Amino acid sequence: MTNTVSGANSAPTHSHAVNPDVLHPRLHELCHQVLTSSFGSTALMHALASGLSDVSSQLRGLPATEGRLIERGIQLIAGLNPELVVLTENIRLPVSKAALDVVERNDPRHYASLTLDADSGGRRGYTPDLIIVNRGTKVAHVVDVKRSLSSYDAVRLQELKKRMLAGALTVPDLLYQEHHRLSVEAVQVVILDAQNASRDASSGIWPVSDLDHLLEVEGAGKAIAYLRRSFQTAVEQVWREALQHYHQARELSSDERRAGAMPWADTQRHAPDKSRASDRDDRIVGAAGAGERPEIRIGFATLPTVRAQALS
Rank of each mutant, 00 (worst) to 15 (best):
L211M: 08
L211C: 06
L211R: 00
L211P: 03
L211D: 01
D212P: 00
D212E: 09
D212K: 05
D212Q: 06
D212S: 11
D212N: 14
H213T: 12
H213F: 10
H213V: 07
H213M: 07
H213N: 10
L214G: 01
L214M: 09
L214T: 06
L215H: 03
L215G: 02
L215I: 07
L215V: 02
E216Q: 13
E216Y: 01
E216I: 01
E216F: 00
E216G: 10
E216L: 01
V217S: 00
V217H: 00
V217F: 04
E218L: 07
E218S: 10
E218T: 14
G219E: 04
G219N: 07
G219T: 05
G219V: 06
G219A: 07
G219P: 01
A220S: 06
A220T: 03
A220K: 04
A220Y: 03
G221S: 06
G221T: 02
G221P: 02
G221R: 01
K222W: 10
K222H: 10
A223K: 01
A223R: 05
A223C: 11
A223Q: 08
A223G: 09
A223E: 07
I224F: 03
I224S: 01
A225V: 12
A225Y: 05
A225D: 13
A225N: 08
Y226G: 06
Y226L: 12
Y226F: 12
Y226C: 09
Y226P: 01
L227Q: 08
L227I: 10
L227S: 03
R228D: 04
R228Y: 09
R228F: 09
R228K: 11
R229C: 10
R229Q: 15
R229V: 09
R229K: 13
S230H: 10
S230Q: 13
S230C: 12
S230G: 14
S230L: 15
F231I: 03
F231R: 04
Q232P: 05
Q232A: 15
Q232E: 15
Q232L: 12
Q232W: 09
T233L: 13
T233Y: 12
T233D: 15
A234P: 06
A234S: 15
A234R: 08
A234M: 08
A234C: 07
A234Y: 07
V235Q: 11
V235R: 12
V235C: 06
V235A: 10
E236L: 14
E236S: 15
E236P: 00
Q237I: 08
Q237D: 13
Q237C: 08
Q237G: 11
Q237S: 13
Q237K: 13
V238F: 05
V238P: 05
V238E: 06
W239L: 14
W239R: 14
W239T: 10
R240S: 15
R240E: 15
R240L: 13
R240F: 08
R240Y: 08
